[in-house]
Design a binder for these strands. Sequence first.
DNA 1: CATGAATGAGGCTTCATTCAT
DNA 2: CATGAATGAAGCCTCATTCAT
Lengths: 188, 188, 188, 188
Amino acid sequence: MARPKSDDRRSAILSAAIRRIAADGPGASTAAIAKEAGVSNGSLFTYFETKADLLNRLYVELKVEMATAALDGLPSGDDLRERAFHLWSRWLRWATSSPDKRRTLAHLDVSGEITPESRHTASQAMASVGELLERIRENGPMRDAPLGLVVALTSALADATIDLMIRDPDNADEHCTAAFDAFWRMLA
Amino acid sequence: MARPKSDDRRSAILSAAIRRIAADGPGASTAAIAKEAGVSNGSLFTYFETKADLLNRLYVELKVEMATAALDGLPSGDDLRERAFHLWSRWLRWATSSPDKRRTLAHLDVSGEITPESRHTASQAMASVGELLERIRENGPMRDAPLGLVVALTSALADATIDLMIRDPDNADEHCTAAFDAFWRMLA
Amino acid sequence: MARPKSDDRRSAILSAAIRRIAADGPGASTAAIAKEAGVSNGSLFTYFETKADLLNRLYVELKVEMATAALDGLPSGDDLRERAFHLWSRWLRWATSSPDKRRTLAHLDVSGEITPESRHTASQAMASVGELLERIRENGPMRDAPLGLVVALTSALADATIDLMIRDPDNADEHCTAAFDAFWRMLA
Amino acid sequence: MARPKSDDRRSAILSAAIRRIAADGPGASTAAIAKEAGVSNGSLFTYFETKADLLNRLYVELKVEMATAALDGLPSGDDLRERAFHLWSRWLRWATSSPDKRRTLAHLDVSGEITPESRHTASQAMASVGELLERIRENGPMRDAPLGLVVALTSALADATIDLMIRDPDNADEHCTAAFDAFWRMLA
DNA sequence: CATGAATGAGGCTTCATTCAT
DNA sequence: CATGAATGAAGCCTCATTCAT
């Protein structure tokens, strides 16, 4: 059975939210989002109880999509470096090709509207990434650093790289590789 | 010549803004800021033409303070690693001990209210940091990466470390050192 | 299809605006107007985008009403004097019996908020009046004066008469006739 | 003894008020007026108790100036038409050459800030004009109309003419004369 | 269940007036 | 007495949310 009509509406709202929030920040008005979704002002509130609710769902949805994109087709072999590079480049590719989603995620992350629950849910989608990271550093120089730091470091590094790739798309691949090397030097 | 514009009042407003924005994001209302500063609603506008103006001044002020704190007492010798570590630890110490300022800076950075002029002004205060970074990587593995990436990487790394230091203050010094080692591995 | 925008509400707002502006000038606050209309503060803005918009609509609406009142039942014969008197007395009667509308119109006229477009639209409603005036003076002593002057003169004269009729309502008809005679002497 | 310094300040404020009100209407801020006068914000209030006070003084001052200009050099002979024309043309000349003052007067007249006292005081300056008007109409067709109407009519007529003269300055003299003829036809 | 008008709290900013210097 | 900062009441407008249709 195909998706019921209402799911389309829900997604339309989420997509619209991505575009509006990327452009205007988390202050984007529900009215503007509804309009961009081609949906009525009030309809938004039958799909999301509250603006905060919409923001949180969107946050989780985007994080999951990001994780999925990164993990998609991950080789299962033993070569840690190869697996890590696969993940790394998928991740950066997703982010680079979905700048609105990335911007929105960044906005949401600091908006103060995202609940701990949402953060927790989102982090679960990244679990496998965590495990991989874990194995990478376990014999490297950061073997004693808390995993949290490693994760944060990695994602910060990725973030900086993405920015550069977007600003200088002609050398995107080089930047991607160079940054991965830096990452590997740091950890492994 | 009438009551002069008081520096105290101006600072009171800026401090209040730091506190409110750290807590509520850049959406913190001018009224709330004024109240927290112990100043009348309208008075805020004799010190800052506009809310956006206030935000921009605050941004520059904080960046400059951050740079100053990092650069303070920088040894002038030839030992690059020593100088880098000095700067690194000063920076992290400042950020760790001024969590509100750091949060506010982070909020402002993505708020969409900061003009290119403000960013430019702020970046000038960090000029010496840039130079040091330049010299560090010039013989290292990232010698061919654009300086922009190196800067972004470094500050991302610092950021992640700061978060950790705040969350786990008992081991702050260890985290600081460990992260610096990672940084050095990456660059030098 | 949801609650339709109600004409009643719109008119209520316009009527309220007439009353408030007649009393307080164009500075009458939107809040006061909304309250007098028995409508919420924000509702006013679903009917009029902006205060200036409200003022302009009101202006046009009133001018049109005035023209309609003046032109209503205008005899179509050849007797210029008869037709002119008909128009004259209808006009003055409307103005005299709608003092608030007239005051409001006067306020708006000098408020600096009325756009050239609104003035143009309004003037079209008065087109037939212009034509009549044109024919009246074409063989009279002011045949060489610009039409603009004639119009201005006429409306100034009417204005002065209306004031008098309002101040001395017992002799309103006499004043109306006497002024018309003066008008006729001047033009025809 | 020359005028004390403070009189200069007072006049500076009044002149500034004329300019600002002509441009911005009676809503011109006291701060803007003070600034234009080259005087401090607060100083304005040592010369005028209140904004309304300033407006009223200005009103009276301007009306008196207008009357003075009109009456200046009035021939004392018996030729009513000559005297009337003298007055008429002086009046129109003053108004035409002081457009700011005229605009300001018009704004003040409808501003709702002018007290009956001010109006009364102002009208006294025009007393002689009234008397002349009185004698003009006393044997003419409007001999039975109330003086108030005649005055209003006359000033309305003048007003319309002034507008035209300003819009079409090349033919100002012609318009002035033509309008006087209309005036005379109406009254005498 | 969709729609969009209704609501009213709250946001930013202006301004007349007061008062410390 | 001049100055201009301080004050806080409004003013216009936006927005999340509710509710009649």
